[in-house]
């Protein structure tokens, strides 16, 4: 479809591969003239989603991959990240903004994806996250 970037990438469970995916998506985001604030949000969500997939989902297992599907249009960015882990229940992740959790070094990724994207959904198993950011 003309004017729409729709791709699917399968990457190894390592951060360098993740960075390449991130750059590919952000190049499209820039091409469509998204604001700096939107680009910051999208980058943040990609990093959190990929880090969760690589670290928590696949446990850095070199034999496991991460699937990333994305569609960038002038109206919105849709990103889906799927790992090969057993999944988890995002509702059971503690709220990192509670006073008792403020000093914990980890556990902010899901909250940040929710805060910076317009939509975020997990599949029932919890090993796939789908995020949407509107071009505002």
């Amino acid at each position: 479809m003309e004017g729409i970037c729709h791709k699917r990438m399968v990457i190894a469970s390592d951060l360098e591969a993740a960075r390449q995916v991130e750059n590919t998506i952000l190049d499209e985001v820039e091409r469509y003239g998204y604001s700096d604030a939107s680009a910051f949000s999208i980058r943040l969500a990609i990093e959190e989603g990929l880090n969760n997939a690589i670290k928590h989902g696949n446990g850095y297992d070199p034999n496991k991959t991460v699937q990333v599907a994305f569609a960038v249009t002038p109206q919105q960015v849709v990103i889906s990240i799927t790992d090969e882990g057993p999944g988890f229940d995002p509702a059971r992740v503690p709220d990192p903004t509670c006073d008792e959790n403020l000093e914990k070094p980890c556990g902010r990724g899901i909250m940040l994806m929710r805060a910076y994207m317009d939509e975020i959904h997990y599949n029932p198993c919890g090993n796939q996250v789908r995020m949407v950011k509107k071009n505002s």
């Binding site: 980058r43 990093e47 959190e48 000093e103 914990k104 070094p105 980890c106 940040l112």
Partner: peptide
């Protein structure tokens, strides 16, 4: 220019 949750975690580790 940018920091993710892991970067925030690094600052918190320094604090701890």
């Amino acid at each position: 220019e940018f920091i993710c949750s892991m970067g925030l975690g690094a600052i918190i580790q320094s604090h701890l």
